[in-house]
Amino acid sequence: MKKEINNCGLACPQPVLNTKKALDEIESGIVVSIVDNEAAKENVTRFAQNAGHDVSFEENDGKYIITIIKGEGGQEEVAVPVKEVEQTAASTIYLITTDSIGQGAPELGYTLMKSFFISIKAVEPIPKALILMNAGVKLACTGSKAVEDLQELEKKGTEIIACGTCLDYYKQKDKLEVGKVSNMFEIISKMGTGKVITIA
């Protein structure tokens, strides 16, 4: 189930209302909302996020293509079923959602994270990908002690993926030192291609 709505040329709040209507009409699935100005992009994104949906966007030729996934249906459509993937160490993907491992003293958490990166470089074969989300994106940004470790892993062939929404939120987009910026769509697709271990 995928619906596309073109909101180009429409002023706020019309793009939000059109997107809301399209989402209300489906139980689950994907709504792609196309807008042509920053305010509409922000408003549609905000609306969909607060309604509990997964949102990602791409900019293309002055237009913003906002992809909204509602319910389970949307995710099934993009994710490759895990059982088809060969479960080897080489297909291990780490989803890192924090810059400090575990609950407790933050200082200890940072030390553990540092130690995690030193150790993971030594593990054979190296992980297929590291996905950095939420505060995890800070690991790949200027000032982080993990930047060098991540650069080393990237050189060896590990894909480093940083969540764009998270970089925006923490205002770190121009401080990313390693890896590529990605959206929820790609991240979900990537997670479907290997065994995912979450570091939280």
Binding site: A11, P13, N43, R46, N50
Partner: peptide, 13 residues
């Protein structure tokens, strides 16, 4: 209403 995206373009400007 703000969380629903009812924010006028002027606020972004």
């Amino acid at each position: 209403l703000a969380m629903m995206g009812m924010i006028p373009a002027g606020a972004y400007n």
